[in-house]
Design a protein around this nucleic acid. Structure first.
Length: 824
DNA sequence: AGCACGCCGACT
DNA sequence: GTCGGCGTGCTC
């Protein structure tokens, strides 16, 4: 009699703990940490991840509840122990249920949900029972087929009085056989392959049909061909194929094929390049850490055009040469076929790609290739951080400042931060690349926690573009300035020159739509979203008013709903209006717009490549234009209104503005033509503008860091935002207040907390209501991360207590946002 | 998250 | 009298 073995299984349910299951004897030898298993859960089966194996239960009282786990999903573990540690770290760090984190590591296509089925065992297979079965259960049992398993739910329909728990009595007594029938999960795709069998030459051929001969010819000299490949030549080869197989001339088999997201993307020859001094220095610094087998984080601070991608390529090549694998994380928008193409040209087939544009089947197949070690490089958006990569040697986080690395729902992780954690556990290196490193990176580099690798020059000695700041406070500069004094004389004359020289221009305006605000000129009524506390934006193309925070949209009204007056005024300018205005100013120029309304996916790619092919002269757009790739013929970049991001109610406003301006300015003059940047602003003296003008990151960083230090904001202090959301304003406010009261009491009673933690709020969120949910928040701030975390946990426990007895807190959700990025 | 159990209003 | 509303609590 061996001692029992228990598995801790993390399931895709919002539970903070993993659940215990008994490991059946026949699985004992095969089971391992990090393995995917199928387990019974309520009246279904679920896929979970083994986080621990123990011979004892931590709570013996649970023993009667414990069920046997059902089966292994795969012989091989999904995750290494390091990666398991990584997942629990993420769950701990973000105060998030382990199941929710595990879900990030197991794509939905791999999770299998099974519905429980019963089949009545024939009399001779049933154990003799001591006690007679209750009548209703006996009835239910009799209704079951002994041939076909039936879903338990159908039993419950037929016998409504039998609860699930009572029905399981049939299992306990061994009267039924239990199976779980999977529903609608993705399956690997297989294809039939054919090849020639060796045979004596010249025999039998005379009696073959013409299709059969064609097939033999096709297969001749080929290792094998798939059915679709044969069908390209012979539309209907089925009977011929089976005839050939019957005669023993060919053979066939089923083989798994991957649904390839690169389909039709040509692989070009790798561009040859020699590394600059700076690039080589970076490559060598990383090599040193790799050779020593130690974790190290690097800040690759390279101005736009300094050749960061080539540096990544070289570092990854060296890493692969050591037999280790690479992960490249990119902002979602940067995952273009072009970027992936660069990697494909250098590294060939052994690359997997993970991003939101893939179909579930493609994701599933990419994921399978990764976990079977069939690829060496994974390129993906933030969720690729959790890809099951074995023997990970390096993680590249490109454009590390990009806010899309932060997930804003569920487990609110930041892939940039967690890349450092995963790499540390794997003794791998991390490259944080950006032209505008975040201040956390820069500060940590100064402290020596990260290694700073500056690349301040563009390759081929190209100059950084000169930046002009135009003070818009001085009124209209010329009569064609357009609506709201939109374009200055300076910017217009540069546009003229650019068009005259047959070069391209990018105009950046961080606001989409035609007009962000619409009001009645008679009574002043402002059109607001009925579901959110924001004004509606007028979109001319759709002749509609739309909310940018929910999906509300309204046909543009003829008259004011309040006073019936027909004069409706549109205030402010968005990209749509700017595009319009440019069409009027330059009727012969080709003007296009790039923002979220332009569309995503293929349409976006189309627009970008048509701009690259110079089929567009002026590209108007929001943030999205700051992230594209090289556009060699762009010589002018205009920032139409630099103040927009500056006026955000957020301590990171200056940093964001600096990043935005630097990034968009970097679009100018990337090839041989020199570029020029014009920034229009109403705050021309702001340090984030002046430093961006001089491409002077370090002055900006020093200035900004001093301010952060004075306020105790990151990177000097750490934040946890507690966001309260509820359908009733009153209940939401009350919940926030009561929480704050409890937290204050704890701060007063425990000096360790009180002396080191600051609480800001309660305050209404900058957008007080979205989708009819009121939003309030509290901000916890401390320089000691661990202390802050402990405090948050303690107060959340308090919150649970007061919530239990307080009906006024109903329907209020508390969202914990560790290291919040977005305060809206 | 689901999903079952439980305790109060409009119907055969 | 019951069907069903969703409020509450549990999942090994």
């Amino acid at each position: 009699m061996t001692s029992p073995l228990y598995a801790q299984v993390a399931l895709d349910v919002p539970l903070f703990t993993a659940l215990s299951y008994r490991v059946p004897d026949h699985l004992r030898d095969d089971i391992a940490l990090g393995q995917l298993v199928q387990v019974p859960f309520r009246n279904r089966s679920k896929t979970g991840l083994i986080t621990d194996l123990t011979s004892e239960l931590d709570d013996p009282a649970l023993a009667p509840k414990i069920r046997d786990l059902y089966d292994l999903v795969d012989a091989e573990p999904l995750l290494s122990t390091n990666d398991l540690k990584f997942l629990s770290f993420v769950a701990d760090y973000y105060l998030s249920p382990i199941g929710e984190v595990v879900r990030l590591a197991i794509p939905s296509a791999v999770r299998v949900e099974g519905i429980k089925h019963y089949r009545r065992l024939p009399d001779d297979q049933r154990p003799a029972s001591a006690t007679p079965l209750p009548l209703d259960l006996a009835d239910a049992l009799a209704s079951l087929s002994s041939e076909e398993p039936s879903p338990v739910a159908s039993l419950r329909e037929a016998y409504p009085d039998l609860t699930y728990h009572r029905l399981s009595e049939l299992e306990r007594r061994g009267l039924v056989e239990v199976t779980y029938q999977e529903s609608g999960s993705l399956k690997p795709k297989t294809e039939r392959y054919f090849k020639l069998l060796p045979r004596p030459r010249g025999t039998l051929t005379g009696r073959l049909g013409s299709n059969q001969l064609k097939i033999l010819k096709l297969l001749d000299g080929m290792p094998s061909l798939s059915l679709p490949e044969i069908r390209e030549h012979i539309p209907s080869p089925y009977s011929s194929l089976s005839a050939l197989e019957d005669r023993g001339l060919i053979t066939s088999w089923e083989e798994e094929v991957y649904r390839d997201p690169f389909e039709n993307a040509p692989v070009e020859a790798p561009p040859e390049f020699d590394l600059t001094e700076r690039q080589l220095h970076a490559v060598n610094a990383v090599a040193e850490a790799r050779n020593a087998g130690r974790f190290e984080g690097f800040v690759l601070h390279g101005v736009t055009g300094s050749g960061k991608t080539e540096t990544y390529v070289r570092i990854i090549r060296d890493t692969l040469a050591e037999g280790r694998r690479a992960l490249v994380l990119l902002p979602e928008i940067a995952l273009t076929p072009q970027f992936v193409g660069v990697f494909r040209s250098h590294f060939g087939e052994r690359i997997a790609v993970l991003h939101s544009g893939l179909t579930p089947a493609q994701k599933f197949d990419q994921w399978r290739q990764i976990r079977r070690d069939e690829v060496d490089i994974v390129i993906g958006a933030r969720s690729a951080l959790f890809a099951p990569i074995n023997n990970l040697g390096v993680i590249v986080v490109d454009e590390e400042h990009d806010s899309s690395f932060k997930q804003e729902e569920g487990t609110r992780y930041n892939a940039r931060d967690m890349a450092l954690v995963r790499a540390k556990l794997a003794s791998a290196q991390v490259i944080l690349g950006s032209a505008t490193p975040i201040l956390e990176s820069f500060h940590n580099a100064q402290l020596g926690r990260l290694t700073y690798l500056p690349m301040p020059e563009r390759v081929a000695a190209r100059a950084m573009p000169p930046v002009d700041i135009v003070d818009m406070r001085r009124g209209p500069h010329n009569p064609t300035a357009g609506p709201s004094n939109l374009l200055s004389a300076r910017l217009l004359s540069e546009l003229d020159n650019t068009l005259h020289d047959q070069k391209q221009a990018i105009l950046f305006l961080n606001r989409r739509g035609f007009s962000p605000c619409v009001l009645c000129e008679s009574c002043g009524h402002i059109f607001e979203c009925p579901n959110c506390d924001v004004s509606l934006t007028y979109h001319r193309r759709m002749e509609a008013l739309r909310c940018h925070h929910c999906d509300f949209s309204l046909r543009m009204p003829e008259s004011c709903p309040q006073c019936q007056h027909t004069g409706i005024e549109r205030k402010g300018v968005g990209t749509e209006q700017l595009e319009n205005h440019l069409h009027e100013l330059y009727p012969r120029a080709r003007v296009a717009r790039l923002d979220r309304d332009t569309g995503a996916g293929p349409r976006l790619q189309q627009l970008l490549s048509s701009f690259r092919r110079r089929e567009i002269d002026i590209l108007v757009g929001t943030q999205m234009v700051t992230k594209g790739h090289d556009f060699p013929d762009v010589t002018l970049v205009g920032v139409v209104l630099a103040d927009m991001s500056l006026n955000f109610p957020d301590f990171r406003a200056a940093e964001r503005t600096f990043q935005l301006l630097t990034q968009v300015a970097g679009r100018a003059g990337r090839a041989d033509s020199p570029g020029k940047v014009i920034i229009q602003t109403y705050t021309p003296d702001h340090y984030s503008l002046l430093t961006a003008q001089n491409h002077d990151f370090s002055t900006f960083a020093q200035h900004e860091l001093a301010q952060r230090q004075a306020m105790g904001y990151p990177p000097f202090g750490h934040l946890i935002a507690l966001k309260f959301e509820g359908t009733h304003e009153g209940a939401t406010v009350q919940a926030t207040r009561d929480y704050a009261t409890a937290a204050r009491r704890l701060l007063r009673s425990d000096r360790t907390f009180g002396d080191n933690i600051a609480m800001l709020g309660p305050a209404m969120a900058p957008i007080g209501r979205i989708n009819n949910r009121s939003r309030w928040q509290l901000l916890l701030k401390a320089s000691d991360r661990a202390l802050l975390r402990r405090f948050a946990i303690r107060t959340l426990e308090l919150a649970k207590h007061f919530e239990a007895g307080q009906p006024q807190h109903r329907n209020v959700r508390i969202i914990i946002d560790v290291d919040p990025l977005n305060m809206l």
